[in-house]
Write a protein that binds this DNA or RNA. Structure first.
Lengths: 224, 224
DNA sequence: ACCTGAACACCGTTCAAGT
DNA sequence: ACCTGAACACCGTTCAAGT
């Protein structure tokens, strides 16, 4: 009788939207968005892919759902500190979350149909900026500047073929010799210099955010 | 005899990589990346999808190819002007090209396997910055700041459900009433203000680039 | 109430066979 | 030399039928 007991037990846990979305998110985290198929999600839950359609309308709905979960992981901008500190903390959290779920960056179409976590997040950010005296136009501009930088940084980071200086060094060893000094002299030289100085892409994020916060303070905050 | 003459004539044009890539690019421009299937590309060329494999290794190769074409459309940074002017012109061109080919932004994975246009572009940008006295580290930082902003801006622009103030107004009419004043007060207010003032997202790009160029001038150019 | 077998339309891709 | 028919493995999705 105990034959297949475990499988049956696993099955007994009733399926629901939350379990489906969590399974999908784990699959995407592990294998990227191309591994996220309805069939894989079903398998992870001990169920056929067709069963999922009772809990999500279709794959698009599933993607919207997991993108909103990712959004919910981003720290809301703290209150009780200056707008700069608050925006800085939020930006760092956002990049961290996107680095953890790199597949999510390419799924921004979902923002056309924002989920509840997304809306709440937007409202909080705008609240902090408005509370610090930004006009609606200035708050929008500041928000857009920060998010453009954050998403663009994350987008590039997600597709970087190296992370650690060691990986960069390895990549440099194989790539740099292929860059002819006549055709790509600057690329070659900069590549050599970066490898030699142990460049770490991730360290570039905070100086960039500070530069942008500076500009916002200086040019955006009290405008219109 | 003239039966099918035209079709035959079209077929006579020998297939080659360039024709395949150009057809693929047109399809993506017209219908987005989800309409870009091997079958559609073949159809556009009067050929079965299997014939394409003589000219591209596989679909990934085809995507790499069209992304590099997109890259080639971005204006190289002009020389003979200040680094700021040069970077500004390049940035504006890059955003314009990405707005014309919004599907390309999600295909950045291809940057792991950069094509010739991509390499040439990188080399030119680094050349301008190095020529203006930027160290390798400073040039990398400046380049990364600009590109993060450009890509992030384009990524958001590509998924914006509105372009013109009229579209924004229409969207506002349908969305704003759904935002409860208790749950999303700031989002609601900012939405109302933006609609009322005729906000145009695209106009935000240049002030943002100028803010970043300012920061680079001030903080990055002469460092390390 | 919840799950699935069978079926469909559509992908990318290979390869032997056609011209 | 260039193209294609047939075939395969894999998608997302619907729906009638099962428990």
């Amino acid at each position: 009788m105990p034959t297949g007991a475990k499988r049956t037990a696993t099955r007994r846990l009733p399926l629901n939207r939350g379990r489906v979305l969590r399974a999908a998110l784990e699959i995407a985290d592990k294998g990227g968005s191309e591994s996220l198929t309805m069939s894989n999600v079903g398998q992870k839950l001990g169920v056929e892919s067709m069963s999922l359609y009772r809990h999500v309308r279709n794959k698009e709905d599933l993607l919207d759902g997991i993108v909103d979960i990712v959004y919910s992981e981003i720290e809301l901008p703290p209150s009780g500190v200056s707008w700069r500190t608050s925006m800085r903390r939020r930006a760092i959290s956002a990049r961290e979350v996107l680095a953890r779920h790199p597949w999510a960056i390419g799924l921004m179409e979902s923002l056309t149909r924002p989920g509840p976590a997304n809306l709440r997040h937007h409202d909080s950010v705008l609240g902090v900026l408005r509370g610090a005296g930004f006009s609606s136009a200035a708050a929008t501009r500041a928000y857009n500047l920060l998010d453009s930088y954050i998403y663009g940084f994350a987008l590039q980071e997600a597709h970087l073929p190296f992370g650690t200086p060691e990986e960069l060094a390895e990549l440099g060893k194989s790539m740099i010799p292929q860059l002819s000094s006549e055709e790509f002299p600057f690329l070659r030289q900069v590549g050599i210099d970066l490898v030699q100085s142990g460049f770490v892409y991730a360290n570039e994020f905070e100086p960039g955010i500070d530069l942008i916060l500076d500009g916002i303070e200086r040019r955006v905050r009290l405008k219109s």
